[in-house]
Design a protein around this nucleic acid. Structure first.
Length: 196
DNA sequence: TAGAGGATTGAT
DNA sequence: TCAATCCTCTAC
């Protein structure tokens, strides 16, 4: 299981480091897991981040916990998006988990997502939370115990990591050009075809 | 308190 | 290309 020191690093470091690690949830007594294949880093120093300029609201207060906690929020009124908080307390940095490769509990994931077992089952931030059973009630939870959700360490990644621009943050101006989206090069499980 | 918009998704 | 869908935030 990944420890506190890992989560205290810069979000881009954590975003890269999470690739190839296994995200595990145990929700409603059911264990599901998947290998993280795509992430995005968000720092309070740039406009794409909900905590830009240390902006604290009821929605994003979980972002200001210490690294190693979950930040879950609702997007477009429909989807729950799961982030891993990084850095010291009060920083407001996080890493969005955008896609996983399903490993354990694929049947229950299919049931939750009302989808077939294909490479598209968890290929997007809104889809993977549904498959893993992650909801708004999990925002603020610690990822550093094995009660509800955590990240299993794995062997050092030997595949290539591709860095591209993040998705859906055109409003962030020049910060939208930061290549802070990281994915396992060539993986069929990522949310969208690779760019640049 | 009203109004605008969003770190998405799936159907057309 | 566009609608679904509703919470959050900002302006007044």
């Amino acid at each position: 299981m990944l420890n506190k020191e890992f989560f205290l690093q810069h979000p881009t470091t954590v975003a890269r480091g999470l690739l190839g690690k296994t995200l595990v949830t145990r929700i409603e007594g059911v264990r599901t897991s998947g290998v993280i294949v795509e992430t995005e880093a968000y720092s309070h120093t740039e406009r794409g981040c909900h905590a830009f300029g240390n902006r604290l609201t009821p929605r994003n207060q979980a972002m200001f916990k210490a690294g190693g906690h979950a930040y879950v929020y609702r997007c477009y009124g429909i989807h729950n998006l799961f982030n891993v908080v990084t850095g010291p307390p009060e920083f407001g940095d996080a890493v969005l988990i955008r896609a996983i490769e399903p490993r354990e509990g694929i049947k229950i994931m299919m049931t939750r997502a009302h989808a077939a077992a294909s490479s598209r089952l968890t290929s997007g931030p809104g889809k993977l939370t549904r498959a893993l059973g992650i909801g708004l009630q999990h925002s603020g939870r610690s990822l550093m115990n094995k009660r509800v959700m955590w990240v299993e360490d794995g062997e050092a990644l030997t595949v290539d990591i591709c860095a591209t621009t993040r998705v859906g943050i055109d409003y962030a101006g020049e910060d939208a050009a930061l290549r802070w989206r990281f994915l396992i090069s060539g993986s069929p499980w990522v949310s969208k075809p690779q760019r640049g």
